[in-house]
């Protein structure tokens, strides 16, 4: 079973940065104080972050909830520095405040009847599946992870995924770590021997198309985490549209996703 729910309504708050650390120049690992989101976050959900007093960077930015520790009241995010907003975020210090809205998006709740899931992720796309791996493991489901990147330093969230996974297979394009080549080749040879009830993918359209193929061939049930330019993150602006595969019209990533059964959405080439 794969079921997603809207979950608890989001809050909007000024959240304190508890911890912030830059790694490999390109990534920010950050912990935020947010008891409500830590308590209510579901796998697949995300938050929107806005820098206070920065109307030149006016729209909040969406980021996946990587971990949610309800005992500590903290959530962690892993952010790749790509543009203006993430660059400015990387200069923030512990104790500073960020405007935070969440949890947003539909969360994955039900794994009844499943005994194993696969995660095929690339780059910072790995951030999307950590909470899923965590909740699946808690339910006694076997998690098999295929983690990929262009090079070793871009293998993101490895330290989170290793303790949660039965096995982590690693692939890099340049061979600096693990298998040199496509991670889905490792997935395919794994599937030759062992079945996976569901496979979730994030961070690569090529991966998504591959999972779509496996899904349509009946080899597994595939799910994809999608991105889209967002303004509101909660269904108000109709900005984050993705095309439906089987009928006319669009889904909204923030309202209907961000995780979708891979067959129902169009994956652009």
């Amino acid at each position: 079973m794969h079921q997603t729910v809207t979950g608890k309504p989001p809050i909007f708050q000024a959240a304190q940065i508890v911890k912030i650390e830059k790694r490999h120049r390109e990534y920010i690992y950050m912990a935020l104080d947010s008891p409500y989101i830590a308590l209510n976050a579901l796998p697949g959900q995300f938050v929107m972050i806005k820098l206070p007093d920065a109307d030149d960077l006016i729209l909040p930015r969406p980021f996946d909830i990587v971990t949610a520790d309800s005992a500590k009241g903290e959530i962690e995010l892993v952010i790749k520095i790509t543009g203006k907003g993430t660059h400015r975020l990387s200069h923030k210090k512990p104790g500073e405040l960020l405007l935070l809205t969440g949890p947003l998006g539909r969360g994955i709740t039900d794994f009844t009847g499943d005994s194993s899931i696969g995660l095929l992720v690339r780059g910072v796309g790995a951030a999307a599946v950590v909470l899923l791996a965590n909740r699946a493991k808690e339910k006694g489901i076997k998690v098999v992870t295929f983690l990929s990147a262009s090079t070793k330093e871009r293998l993101v969230c490895r330290e989170y995924l290793e303790p949660l996974s039965h096995t982590v297979f690693i692939a890099t394009d340049d061979g600096t770590e693990g298998y040199r080549g496509n991670a889905w080749e490792m997935l395919d040879s794994f599937l030759d021997k062992t079945a996976l009830d569901q496979i979730y993918t994030c961070g690569s359209r090529r991966f998504a198309r591959h999972i779509k193929k496996l899904d349509s061939e009946g080899k597994t049930r595939g799910f994809v985490f999608l991105e889209g330019f967002m303004a509101c993150g909660m269904g108000d602006c109709h900005g984050c549209a993705v095309k439906k595969a089987k009928e006319e019209g669009y889904f909204l990533v923030c309202q209907d996703g961000p995780v979708f059964p891979v067959g129902v959405v169009e994956i652009k080439s």
């Binding site: 006016i58 729209l59 109709h238 984050c240 549209a241």
Partner: peptide, 12 residues
């Protein structure tokens, strides 16, 4: 159905 994406983008 509305327009094809991207539908929103930040401006100054």
């Amino acid at each position: 159905p509305g327009n094809k994406p991207p539908r929103v983008y930040e401006a100054p």
